[in-house]
């Protein structure tokens, strides 16, 4: 097993960092992290899932999404099409059969990637991503600019694309959805754990991460590894 290393990937619009953990060979998985503030709240948790997957012998990649996380691209130059193109390029660069893991809004980013399967934790559509941002900014002190939502400057095309994203597009291939047990919406499995993406402060839940990693490992095996 190999430890955490910082790799990178190229896509048509630039160059982004990509964390890698575990082996370089199959089974391989790529994580589409949560978006905006939820990404900060779930950063440690996402890494805990990745580390646990590595102990299951799964090689994991976590690419930076353009205009998100540590990306140098300003958020107001990001578009949904670019997110999807970048994630698809990162997946292609890993090569071979790669399984997708989407956390929350990550589920709208992985649609163009060639993935062997898709595992989703409490996925939300672009429309929900946008309404969460709007609600957060309505209850926060905003500095007036309509394009600034909860501290994020968003380009009009991104706002429009999120607004129009109301259902998960059919991507083909197997999909598994997991939600926390307090969430009544349909899922393949409900797991006891905290919705850390709602926490006002970043937090982690290692037992929850371990349960999810075990679920993902079993799922990837059932999808042919």
């Amino acid at each position: 097993m190999t430890g955490l290393r910082i790799d990178s990937y190229d896509w048509q619009g630039g160059h982004e960092a990509m964390l890698r953990l575990g082996p370089d060979h199959a089974p391989l998985a790529i994580i589409a992290p949560a978006l905006f503030e939820e990404a900060n709240r779930t950063r440690a948790f996402t890494l805990a899932i990745a580390r646990a997957l590595a102990t299951h012998g799964i090689g994991v990649a976590i690419p930076d999404i353009p205009g998100q996380g540590e990306s140098v691209l300003p958020t107001d130059r990001a578009s949904l099409a670019d997110w999807r193109a970048a994630f698809a390029a990162a997946t292609a660069q890993i090569g071979g059969q790669v399984h997708g893991i989407a956390i929350r809004g990550g589920a709208i980013v992985d649609t163009d990637a060639e993935l062997a399967s898709r595992w989703r934790l409490s996925p939300i559509t672009g429309q929900t991503v946008l309404s969460d941002l709007r609600r957060a900014s309505r209850h926060a002190t905003v500095n007036g600019e309509p394009s600034t939502l909860a501290g994020n400057r968003l380009a009009a095309p991104l706002v429009a694309a999120l607004e129009a994203d109301e259902i998960f597009p059919s991507t083909g291939g197997p999909v598994r959805t997991v939600r926390v047990d307090t969430d009544p919406r349909p899922a393949d499995r409900h797991v006891a754990g905290s919705p850390l993406w709602r926490r006002s402060e970043p937090a982690n839940d290692p037992p929850f991460a371990a349960t999810l990693a075990a679920d993902i490992a079993q799922w990837i095996t059932s999808c042919g590894g």
Binding site: R135, H139, A140, T141, S200
Partner: peptide, 25 residues
Amino acid sequence: PELDSMAVAGVLTEVEDRLGIVIED
């Protein structure tokens, strides 16, 4: 002190999700 304006948004959204209701801001 934990209940700041960002947390209010989280509380409202999570209450909506769990009870299957819609809260207008």
